[in-house]
């Protein structure tokens, strides 16, 4: 928790990326891939795992090398490290499935400029030990994946009537005669769903605060 005194516990480090400091919903980082790839649930998983992999690996390496990297070239070094891992992910996905690779498009390579990764490298990994950095990376990665799924599930369910399309686990939600809301898997749908989810979360937060205020009064 941000209002807590003293160094955060390991559990807090892990959990805050999921909710209190969720990179997408709270900090509005990495909105480009969030909007671009969430038209399919499988893309969300792939993107989430890729980002998590890059986060963890670069976090690990950076926190290990943190005392060897001069301050002046810190960002340049981070970018080289991140770009290396992103390229690895890029090749890995190509070798696993070309269809997946096609549907993610350039956004795998664009992980390089995803603010979440550079931000965590700068704000956390370069200041903390490897164990904590990895925990933070996993938390942030899960938070990012969770946010992607929040969009992806809605967009795929309404936009195609399915969950997990293009995988062996495809589930049809509404039967064969469903009329898909094509807009959901098109660009405007991304903007609308993220916007509406932000409103939903703001409303939930507001209601919780009101409740808390009421109990505090009582």
């Amino acid at each position: 928790m941000s209002d807590q005194q003293g160094p955060p516990s390991s559990m807090d480090v892990f959990l805050r990326g999921l909710w209190q400091e969720n990179p997408v919903f709270v900090m509005l980082l990495g909105t480009c891939p969030t909007l671009a790839v969430t038209n399919k649930v499988i893309n969300c998983f792939a993107m989430g795992v890729s980002v998590m992999f890059v986060l963890v690996m670069s976090g690990l390496l950076i926190s290990l090398l943190r005392s060897f990297i001069p301050k002046q070239v810190r960002i340049a070094s981070f970018i080289i490290i991140i770009a290396t891992f992103v390229t690895i992910v890029d090749y890995a996905i190509q070798s696993i499935s070309l269809d997946l690779y096609d549907s993610l498009g350039a956004f795998i390579q664009l992980i390089v400029v995803n603010c979440i990764i550079l931000g965590r490298a700068e704000a956390f990994a370069s200041k903390n030990g490897p164990a904590k950095s990895m925990l933070d990376a996993v938390g942030m990665g899960l938070g990012f994946t969770f946010a992607l799924l929040c969009l992806g599930v809605i967009r795929e369910a309404l936009g195609n009537g399915t969950l997990m399309m293009d995988t062996p686990f495809e589930i049809s939600l509404f039967g064969p005669n469903f009329a898909p809301w094509s807009i959901m898997i098109l660009p405007p749908g991304g903007f609308f769903v993220l916007g509406l989810e932000l409103i939903l979360f703001a409303w939930l937060r507001k209601r919780r605060e009101q409740r808390r205020a009421q109990t505090a009064q009582a």
């Binding site: 900090m27 002046q72 550079l118 700068e122």
Partner: peptide, 16 residues
């Protein structure tokens, strides 16, 4: 937003 990254990039721009 990019504020964090920007803050990070700013010191790098200085040529100490």
């Amino acid at each position: 937003m990019t504020t964090q990254a920007q803050a990070a990039a700013a010191p790098a721009a200085q040529h100490n």
